[in-house]
Design a protein around this nucleic acid. Structure first.
Lengths: 289, 289
DNA sequence: TTGCTCCTCACGTCACGTGAGGTGGC
DNA sequence: TTGCTCCTCACGTCACGTGAGGTGGC
């Protein structure tokens, strides 16, 4: 009574193609999962090499599909399969993956902005600038160079997808080191930006107390020196983010409004966008942190 | 009078390490560029294998660094080096790369949203839904399934980074096909979403006339059927985007305001964010298109 | 002798996709 | 006989990074 020719399969077992159709995975992918031991068939025909899967494996394969569809790395998927039906474990994996994706997003967004600048200013004038910087390594003091390099290094780490705990240490101290060197050679605006970055690092690391502290210091420096425009908007952004990390949604909202208001006063409209974009990455839902 | 021990180098030529320091590239990267013939040293010492670069190559290497820093593929970098000082060519490459990055951004953003939903709703309830869908393939008509699959297929192509002209063709016709099948079996809301997607495809392909046409049709269907909420906001978004593609900044601004106003009325606040985010990817600067 | 720069392989990365070439049963 | 599903290698992807093991001149 079957309308399709029955493959030579034991009853109730699925061939690789059937499982593929049940799950939205490709047969190539399923063979790959077998090879790497992520999801192996319940039985294999010795003579033909045909793979046969149990019906219970459909759920597992489907879980793999769902996780891979949002690009969870195979190793993390493996962890989810090891402790089946462990919603808490999966939740952890997803939370970690969310952070990974956020870093990726920041990175791509950064690339996009820089490409826009290259298009806008032209590559050769950008090159001329870099050249000027690098040809006079003595003109800018070593310490200034160091402050800049450290600042950029922190950015790179913030955008790194798989930071180890050691990376976090490095990033943390590096941010302080950059701020320190700015303290030796920088203008007030450099100090406030240094405080901003230190605050950002603490927010990303989920430590509201220091995040809030340095965000406040940044704002104080800005006010004391009559700095406005872009830097002011970002000072409020830091406060909003730190508040969100602290779980204070109400305060986060208030500071976000302030940041948006300050963004309105930014002279160059093209400079407004980064503020808005950045504000968006503030976790509205503290449960993700 | 030199303070560093002079490497055994012909006068005025740079060793690989020096060039690296001049450009911010690593020596590993420079050796790689040599291997693949992207940037080869002017001279190589036969006995030691030492690479020596001409001072004129500093500018080339620096260009490579700048482009790679924003992740321009090596093949595109190669094109920029072939016609030196060709700012127009570089501009083209950068414009193409901007599109690539935009696709990447959309993709990561999509993953992030889906992860949020998985975290919010739980993986198992998501699986239960998928199961329900797939277990009753006869319950939903084939045509409905086709409309959905085509719709999703268009999304995948929109997020693809290196669309060929054939991909563009496929995407275009696929969007119309999806809309057609919805026309056979869908509710008005499906039709409006179909029109929205068709409009989006034309916008992405830089064709304002049809983009505008289908955006308008989408809005008409929505109004005729009293549809509101999210769909209404996106209808305005499509009009804003199409206007931007047409180069009409003023109209784009007006429709964007409308979209934002409509977003305010969306019941679930979590559903507001996608609208805002999407509005942001509208090119404010038509020169990029 | 120690340091520093330079060299060449060979392999790893990440998750499969793409053939080539062939089998087995309806 | 034709179609369809299934199989196993082997190689490619992208841009380098990571050792291992060694050289050459101050």
């Amino acid at each position: 009574m079957e309308d399709a020719p029955a493959p030579p399969e034991p009853p109730d077992l699925l061939t690789i193609g059937r499982l593929a159709r049940h799950t939205g995975l490709t047969t190539k992918a399923l063979r790959h999962y077998d090879r790497v031991g992520l999801l192996s068939p319940a039985a294999v025909d010795d003579s033909t090499g045909y793979r046969y899967y149990e019906p219970a494996q459909i759920a597992q394969a489907r879980l793999v599909q769902i996780l891979r569809a949002v690009d969870v790395p195979l190793e993390q998927v493996r962890e989810c399969l090891l402790t089946p039906d462990d919603e808490a474990r999966i939740h952890q994996v997803l939370a970690a993956h969310r952070r990974r994706l956020q870093s990726r997003l920041d990175r791509v967004r950064g690339d996009l902005h820089r490409v826009d600048h290259l298009i806008h200013d032209g590559v050769f004038s950008t090159m001329a600038q870099t050249e000027a910087k690098q040809q006079t390594p003595e003109a800018t003091t070593d310490e200034r160079r160091q402050a800049i390099d450290l600042f950029n290094g922190v950015w790179r780490l913030l955008e790194k997808e798989n930071r180890t705990i050691e990376d976090d240490d490095t990033m943390l101290h590096m941010a302080h080191a950059s701020r320190y060197h700015w303290g030796q050679v920088g203008a007030p605006v450099n100090l406030s930006r240094g405080e901003w970055q230190v605050s950002r690092v603490y927010s990303v690391l989920g430590r509201p107390e220091p995040a809030m502290y340095h965000a406040r210091r940044g704002l104080e420096i800005i006010r004391a020196n009559g700095i406005a425009d872009w830097d002011l908007a970002f000072a409020y952004e830091a406060l909003a983010r730190a508040s969100a990390v602290a779980g204070d949604k109400e305060q986060a909202r208030v500071w976000t409004e302030q940041a948006l208001a300050a963004a309105e006063d930014i002279a160059d409209p093209e400079d407004r966008e980064p503020v808005i974009t950045d504000l968006e990455s503030i976790p509205g839902q503290p449960r993700f942190w």
